[in-house]
Amino acid sequence: MSQPIAVYYQKFANRWKTLVFCGLLLIFKSNLTLASGEPFPIGAKSWGIGNATVALADRNAVFNNPAGLGFLKDNFVSSSYHARYNIAGLQTLSLSGNYNAKLANIGLGVERFGDKLYNEQKLGIAIGKSMNRVALGLKVSYFQAAIENFAAKNTLLTEFGVMTKLSSKVQVGFHAYNLTGAKLFASQQIPTVLRLGLSFSPTKQILLVTEAEKNIELPTLIKAGLEYQIVKNFYLRTGLTSKLNNAHFGFGFQSKQLIFDYALSSHSALGFSNHLSISYQIGKSSNQ
Protein backbone atom coordinates (compact mmCIF):
# COMPACT_ATOMS: atom_id res chain seq x y z
CA MET A 1 0.00 0.00 0.00
CA SER A 2 1.55 3.30 -1.07
CA GLN A 3 2.19 6.03 1.47
CA PRO A 4 -0.63 8.41 0.33
CA ILE A 5 -3.17 5.57 0.25
CA ALA A 6 -2.09 4.37 3.70
CA VAL A 7 -2.47 7.86 5.18
CA TYR A 8 -5.91 8.26 3.58
CA TYR A 9 -6.99 4.84 4.86
CA GLN A 10 -5.84 5.64 8.40
CA LYS A 11 -7.75 8.94 8.42
CA PHE A 12 -10.87 7.20 7.13
CA ALA A 13 -10.59 4.47 9.78
CA ASN A 14 -10.16 7.02 12.56
CA ARG A 15 -13.20 9.00 11.44
CA TRP A 16 -15.27 5.84 11.10
CA LYS A 17 -14.39 4.73 14.62
CA THR A 18 -15.26 8.19 15.89
CA LEU A 19 -18.68 8.11 14.22
CA VAL A 20 -19.39 4.64 15.60
CA PHE A 21 -18.41 5.64 19.11
CA CYS A 22 -20.52 8.82 18.97
CA GLY A 23 -23.45 6.66 17.89
CA LEU A 24 -22.93 4.43 20.92
CA LEU A 25 -22.90 7.50 23.14
CA LEU A 26 -26.27 8.57 21.80
CA ILE A 27 -27.75 5.08 22.14
CA PHE A 28 -26.57 4.47 25.69
CA LYS A 29 -26.71 8.04 27.03
CA SER A 30 -29.83 7.64 29.14
CA ASN A 31 -28.53 4.46 30.78
CA LEU A 32 -24.83 5.14 31.17
CA THR A 33 -24.93 8.68 32.50
CA LEU A 34 -21.78 9.51 30.62
CA ALA A 35 -22.18 12.13 27.91
CA SER A 36 -22.67 15.85 28.36
CA GLY A 37 -20.91 16.22 31.71
CA GLU A 38 -23.63 14.53 33.72
CA PRO A 39 -22.55 13.66 37.29
CA PHE A 40 -21.13 10.16 37.68
CA PRO A 41 -21.07 8.70 41.22
CA ILE A 42 -17.52 8.09 42.37
CA GLY A 43 -16.35 5.45 44.82
CA ALA A 44 -16.97 1.72 45.22
CA LYS A 45 -18.69 2.38 48.55
CA SER A 46 -21.14 4.67 46.75
CA TRP A 47 -21.94 2.00 44.16
CA GLY A 48 -22.27 -0.68 46.81
CA ILE A 49 -25.17 1.18 48.47
CA GLY A 50 -26.96 2.15 45.27
CA ASN A 51 -25.39 5.62 45.01
CA ALA A 52 -27.68 7.01 47.71
CA THR A 53 -24.86 9.16 49.07
CA VAL A 54 -26.18 12.72 49.29
CA ALA A 55 -26.54 12.51 53.09
CA LEU A 56 -23.14 10.89 53.77
CA ALA A 57 -20.06 12.71 55.00
CA ASP A 58 -17.34 10.30 53.92
CA ARG A 59 -14.15 10.08 51.83
CA ASN A 60 -16.16 10.47 48.57
CA ALA A 61 -17.90 13.68 49.67
CA VAL A 62 -15.82 15.85 47.31
CA PHE A 63 -17.56 14.08 44.41
CA ASN A 64 -20.98 13.23 45.83
CA ASN A 65 -21.86 16.22 48.05
CA PRO A 66 -19.30 18.90 48.97
CA ALA A 67 -21.26 19.76 52.12
CA GLY A 68 -20.05 16.45 53.56
CA LEU A 69 -16.54 17.88 53.70
CA GLY A 70 -17.71 20.15 56.51
CA PHE A 71 -18.43 17.17 58.77
CA LEU A 72 -15.29 15.18 57.92
CA LYS A 73 -12.87 14.82 60.83
CA ASP A 74 -10.19 12.84 58.99
CA ASN A 75 -8.04 13.55 55.95
CA PHE A 76 -8.12 11.05 53.06
CA VAL A 77 -6.45 10.39 49.74
CA SER A 78 -8.56 8.14 47.51
CA SER A 79 -8.42 6.62 44.06
CA SER A 80 -11.21 4.80 42.20
CA TYR A 81 -11.63 2.77 39.03
CA HIS A 82 -15.00 2.13 37.41
CA ALA A 83 -15.37 -0.30 34.48
CA ARG A 84 -18.88 -0.17 33.02
CA TYR A 85 -20.61 -3.04 31.25
CA ASN A 86 -17.29 -4.55 30.01
CA ILE A 87 -17.34 -2.08 27.11
CA ALA A 88 -13.96 -0.69 26.05
CA GLY A 89 -13.78 3.06 26.45
CA LEU A 90 -16.33 3.30 29.26
CA GLN A 91 -13.87 3.43 32.16
CA THR A 92 -13.69 6.20 34.76
CA LEU A 93 -10.62 6.94 36.87
CA SER A 94 -10.58 9.34 39.78
CA LEU A 95 -8.25 10.75 42.41
CA SER A 96 -9.26 12.88 45.36
CA GLY A 97 -8.10 14.27 48.67
CA ASN A 98 -9.31 16.50 51.45
CA TYR A 99 -7.68 18.74 54.05
CA ASN A 100 -9.26 20.04 57.24
CA ALA A 101 -8.27 23.64 57.84
CA LYS A 102 -9.32 25.99 60.64
CA LEU A 103 -11.73 28.11 58.64
CA ALA A 104 -13.15 25.40 56.37
CA ASN A 105 -12.42 21.98 54.93
CA ILE A 106 -11.06 21.76 51.39
CA GLY A 107 -11.35 18.98 48.84
CA LEU A 108 -9.78 18.35 45.45
CA GLY A 109 -11.09 15.86 42.89
CA VAL A 110 -9.94 14.73 39.44
CA GLU A 111 -11.95 12.49 37.08
CA ARG A 112 -11.23 11.06 33.65
CA PHE A 113 -13.71 9.12 31.56
CA GLY A 114 -13.27 7.45 28.15
CA ASP A 115 -10.37 6.81 25.80
CA LYS A 116 -8.75 8.43 22.75
CA LEU A 117 -11.95 8.46 20.71
CA TYR A 118 -14.04 10.24 23.32
CA ASN A 119 -13.01 11.43 26.76
CA GLU A 120 -14.09 13.74 29.55
CA GLN A 121 -11.93 15.35 32.22
CA LYS A 122 -12.97 17.16 35.38
CA LEU A 123 -10.80 19.03 37.83
CA GLY A 124 -12.73 20.38 40.79
CA ILE A 125 -12.03 22.18 44.03
CA ALA A 126 -14.58 22.12 46.84
CA ILE A 127 -15.00 23.79 50.20
CA GLY A 128 -17.17 22.64 53.10
CA LYS A 129 -17.98 24.49 56.30
CA SER A 130 -19.85 23.14 59.32
CA MET A 131 -21.83 25.29 61.74
CA ASN A 132 -22.81 23.04 64.60
CA ARG A 133 -25.43 20.70 63.08
CA VAL A 134 -25.46 22.20 59.56
CA ALA A 135 -22.76 22.03 56.87
CA LEU A 136 -22.64 23.93 53.59
CA GLY A 137 -20.53 23.04 50.55
CA LEU A 138 -19.58 24.60 47.23
CA LYS A 139 -17.62 23.10 44.35
CA VAL A 140 -16.33 24.55 41.09
CA SER A 141 -15.00 22.25 38.35
CA TYR A 142 -13.23 22.74 35.05
CA PHE A 143 -14.84 20.30 32.62
CA GLN A 144 -13.55 19.30 29.18
CA ALA A 145 -15.00 16.88 26.63
CA ALA A 146 -13.11 15.86 23.49
CA ILE A 147 -13.93 13.75 20.43
CA GLU A 148 -10.89 12.64 18.44
CA ASN A 149 -10.44 14.53 15.15
CA PHE A 150 -13.70 16.39 15.71
CA ALA A 151 -14.02 18.80 18.63
CA ALA A 152 -12.94 19.67 22.15
CA LYS A 153 -15.08 21.83 24.42
CA ASN A 154 -14.70 23.05 27.98
CA THR A 155 -16.74 24.90 30.57
CA LEU A 156 -17.08 25.54 34.31
CA LEU A 157 -19.51 23.56 36.44
CA THR A 158 -20.81 24.61 39.87
CA GLU A 159 -22.28 22.50 42.65
CA PHE A 160 -23.90 23.36 45.98
CA GLY A 161 -24.73 21.15 48.93
CA VAL A 162 -26.33 21.23 52.38
CA MET A 163 -26.16 18.58 55.07
CA THR A 164 -27.95 18.60 58.44
CA LYS A 165 -27.61 16.38 61.51
CA LEU A 166 -31.14 15.91 62.81
CA SER A 167 -29.77 13.67 65.57
CA SER A 168 -26.76 11.49 66.29
CA LYS A 169 -28.35 8.80 64.07
CA VAL A 170 -30.07 10.76 61.29
CA GLN A 171 -28.66 13.06 58.60
CA VAL A 172 -30.37 14.82 55.71
CA GLY A 173 -28.54 15.99 52.59
CA PHE A 174 -29.30 18.10 49.52
CA HIS A 175 -27.11 18.58 46.45
CA ALA A 176 -27.56 20.67 43.30
CA TYR A 177 -25.37 20.01 40.25
CA ASN A 178 -24.78 22.59 37.48
CA LEU A 179 -26.57 25.49 39.15
CA THR A 180 -25.53 27.98 36.47
CA GLY A 181 -26.91 25.96 33.54
CA ALA A 182 -23.53 25.58 31.82
CA LYS A 183 -23.49 24.34 28.23
CA LEU A 184 -20.99 22.08 26.52
CA PHE A 185 -22.08 22.99 22.99
CA ALA A 186 -24.36 25.81 21.90
CA SER A 187 -27.32 23.46 21.48
CA GLN A 188 -26.43 21.08 24.32
CA GLN A 189 -26.97 22.18 27.90
CA ILE A 190 -25.41 20.13 30.67
CA PRO A 191 -28.26 18.84 32.86
CA THR A 192 -29.10 20.30 36.22
CA VAL A 193 -29.49 17.47 38.74
CA LEU A 194 -31.08 17.84 42.20
CA ARG A 195 -30.74 15.21 44.94
CA LEU A 196 -32.38 14.96 48.36
CA GLY A 197 -31.72 12.11 50.74
CA LEU A 198 -31.55 10.67 54.24
CA SER A 199 -29.09 8.47 56.13
CA PHE A 200 -30.08 6.57 59.27
CA SER A 201 -27.75 4.59 61.52
CA PRO A 202 -29.85 2.82 64.18
CA THR A 203 -26.75 1.03 65.52
CA LYS A 204 -23.00 1.28 64.95
CA GLN A 205 -23.20 -1.78 62.68
CA ILE A 206 -26.06 -0.69 60.40
CA LEU A 207 -26.37 2.19 57.93
CA LEU A 208 -29.54 2.79 55.90
CA VAL A 209 -29.64 5.35 53.10
CA THR A 210 -32.28 6.58 50.68
CA GLU A 211 -32.33 9.32 48.07
CA ALA A 212 -34.47 10.94 45.37
CA GLU A 213 -32.65 12.24 42.29
CA LYS A 214 -34.23 14.57 39.74
CA ASN A 215 -32.53 15.33 36.46
CA ILE A 216 -34.70 18.13 35.09
CA GLU A 217 -34.84 16.32 31.73
CA LEU A 218 -35.58 12.82 33.08
CA PRO A 219 -38.00 11.09 35.50
CA THR A 220 -37.20 11.05 39.21
CA LEU A 221 -35.02 8.18 40.46
CA ILE A 222 -35.42 6.62 43.90
CA LYS A 223 -32.37 4.95 45.43
CA ALA A 224 -31.91 2.93 48.60
CA GLY A 225 -28.97 1.16 50.19
CA LEU A 226 -27.82 -0.79 53.22
CA GLU A 227 -24.40 -1.21 54.83
CA TYR A 228 -23.85 -3.80 57.56
CA GLN A 229 -20.65 -4.25 59.58
CA ILE A 230 -20.55 -8.01 60.10
CA VAL A 231 -17.24 -7.90 62.03
CA LYS A 232 -14.97 -5.05 63.03
CA ASN A 233 -13.79 -3.07 59.97
CA PHE A 234 -15.51 -5.37 57.46
CA TYR A 235 -18.68 -4.15 55.72
CA LEU A 236 -21.23 -5.72 53.39
CA ARG A 237 -23.34 -3.47 51.15
CA THR A 238 -26.32 -3.65 48.83
CA GLY A 239 -28.64 -1.22 47.08
CA LEU A 240 -31.31 -0.69 44.44
CA THR A 241 -32.14 2.05 41.93
CA SER A 242 -35.64 2.44 40.53
CA LYS A 243 -36.45 2.64 36.79
CA LEU A 244 -32.86 1.94 35.72
CA ASN A 245 -33.18 -1.73 36.72
CA ASN A 246 -29.93 -1.53 38.64
CA ALA A 247 -28.88 -3.78 41.53
CA HIS A 248 -25.80 -3.13 43.66
CA PHE A 249 -23.59 -5.29 45.87
CA GLY A 250 -20.26 -4.61 47.55
CA PHE A 251 -17.97 -4.91 50.51
CA GLY A 252 -15.34 -2.83 52.28
CA PHE A 253 -12.40 -3.53 54.56
CA GLN A 254 -10.19 -1.22 56.59
CA SER A 255 -6.78 -2.23 57.88
CA LYS A 256 -5.38 0.51 60.07
CA GLN A 257 -5.24 3.51 57.71
CA LEU A 258 -5.75 1.63 54.43
CA ILE A 259 -9.31 1.22 53.14
CA PHE A 260 -10.34 -1.15 50.33
CA ASP A 261 -13.80 -1.05 48.71
CA TYR A 262 -15.27 -3.13 45.89
CA ALA A 263 -18.74 -3.11 44.30
CA LEU A 264 -20.55 -4.91 41.53
CA SER A 265 -23.56 -3.28 39.89
CA SER A 266 -25.85 -4.91 37.35
CA HIS A 267 -28.22 -3.69 34.66
CA SER A 268 -30.88 -6.00 33.22
CA ALA A 269 -30.00 -5.05 29.63
CA LEU A 270 -26.37 -3.91 29.68
CA GLY A 271 -24.78 -6.35 32.13
CA PHE A 272 -22.32 -5.90 34.99
CA SER A 273 -20.00 -3.09 36.07
CA ASN A 274 -17.05 -3.33 38.45
CA HIS A 275 -16.01 -0.62 40.89
CA LEU A 276 -12.82 -0.52 42.94
CA SER A 277 -11.53 2.09 45.40
CA ILE A 278 -8.42 2.35 47.56
CA SER A 279 -8.17 5.07 50.19
CA TYR A 280 -5.60 6.10 52.75
CA GLN A 281 -6.53 7.86 55.96
CA ILE A 282 -3.76 10.36 56.57
CA GLY A 283 -4.57 11.16 60.17
CA LYS A 284 -6.84 12.86 62.65
CA SER A 285 -7.58 16.52 62.12
CA SER A 286 -7.07 19.17 64.76
CA ASN A 287 -10.82 19.82 64.76
CA GLN A 288 -11.71 16.42 66.19
Rank of each mutant, 00 (worst) to 15 (best):
I87E: 01
L123K: 09
F40V: 14
Q254M: 11
V134P: 02
A126Y: 02
G109W: 00
G271C: 10
F160K: 04
A13K: 04
A151D: 14
Q188D: 15
G225W: 03
S279N: 11
G43C: 03
K256M: 02
S96E: 07
H275M: 06
Y262H: 07
K73F: 06
S273W: 00
F71Y: 08
L24D: 09
K169P: 00
L156P: 00
S266H: 11
N119F: 02
G70C: 07
S265K: 00
I49D: 05
S242F: 03
Y85Q: 03
E217A: 14
Y118S: 03
L123I: 10
P39K: 15
S268T: 13
F12T: 07
T92D: 04
A57F: 05
Y81K: 06
T92K: 10
K29T: 09
A35R: 02
L179M: 13
V209R: 00
A247S: 13
A55V: 04
K165H: 14
Q189V: 04
L276D: 03
N245A: 12
F251E: 03
A176W: 01
F272G: 00
I222D: 02
Q91C: 04
C22Y: 07
L236M: 13
A186S: 14
G89I: 06
P219K: 06
N31L: 07
A101T: 10
A182K: 02
V54G: 00
G271L: 10
T220K: 12
N215C: 02
G239V: 10
R133T: 03
T164I: 13
M131Y: 14
S268Y: 12
S265P: 00
T220R: 12
L194T: 09
L32H: 01
L179Y: 01
L34K: 02
L221I: 01
L25K: 09
N274C: 02
A176F: 01
N245C: 08
Y81Q: 07
Y142K: 10
S242T: 15
V77S: 07
Q10A: 11
K29A: 14
L95C: 07
I5W: 06
V172E: 08
L221M: 04
N178R: 08
A88I: 06
I5L: 14
A6F: 05
D58L: 02
P202E: 12
A176K: 05
N154Y: 10
A6N: 07
A151S: 14
R237W: 03
N64H: 06
A146N: 12
N215K: 05
G173Q: 01
V20F: 07
L90E: 10
L136A: 14
S265I: 05
S201V: 02
